[in-house]
Design a protein around this nucleic acid. Sequence first.
DNA 1: CAAAGTGTACTATTCAAGTAATACACTACA
DNA 2: TGTAGTGTATTACTTGAATAGTACACTTTG
Lengths: 133, 133
Amino acid sequence: MIFRINQSAGVPLYIQLMEQVKHAVELGALREGDQLPTIRKVAEELVINPNTVVRAYRELEHEGVLELKHGSGAFITEPSGKRAPLIAKAQAIVQSAIDRLAALGLTEEELRRIFESQLAQVRAEGRMEKQKG
Amino acid sequence: MIFRINQSAGVPLYIQLMEQVKHAVELGALREGDQLPTIRKVAEELVINPNTVVRAYRELEHEGVLELKHGSGAFITEPSGKRAPLIAKAQAIVQSAIDRLAALGLTEEELRRIFESQLAQVRAEGRMEKQKG
DNA sequence: CAAAGTGTACTATTCAAGTAATACACTACA
DNA sequence: TGTAGTGTATTACTTGAATAGTACACTTTG
């Protein structure tokens, strides 16, 4: 598991970390029992404070995604679920769309704004699932 | 111009407002000379503090997107540019992708994570334009 | 058993976002 | 000319994110 964070995104770092772990689990890249990188190691690699990583891990534990074992490490507890193929399919769709958009010469910022705008549209129309399943 | 904000998104409200104005300009929905809703009106509609709106508008002014005219209002200064058709095309691509994804029964959160993950991918590979043009 | 590596627990501090309330200054318009 | 509606300015406060540093407790491994 390799984390990528964006310091200037406005989104709290611990949220970014949480999202990435969740995504890896949803995709099946992380499975039940897998060990996550150490709090200290993550903090060191990303040059952020260990407390920030602690916060992310602890919230994930609270949500039942992983388990923190005192003295030994953080381990995934949530089974990858049957949705993994669905997520993989969705990922393919997104990838092809982003590829086309990148080829058009769009900026990341422009792309983000378009994405948010369209998402808000779908949300407002109630066409988006609110809970898994 | 109608604003939509998401209080629980983690993204600062003034940033959300800025992004939406920029997007409207990029898309050509807002043109040079168009007046934006009043600071007080926006604050009232969204039930947020006027200072937050002021901040968004002021930063947009600083970026040259709009002009604040004391006593009269906020007006777009930036021409819509030749990129409008490009943005419109991009928007169509995104819309069709999101429609397909929504139909799959994906959650907004799942979709966001997939989007961020793929975007990070493209960014890391340097396949994304960094400046307009 | 000892040491290294892990998570846990504190306290203090800094910074940005957002709220709240008030007063002021300029402009458009009847 | 006045008044309503606009942006401007200021001060104070609350909250959450993130940093910084230190000490402690548990587990694994040699």
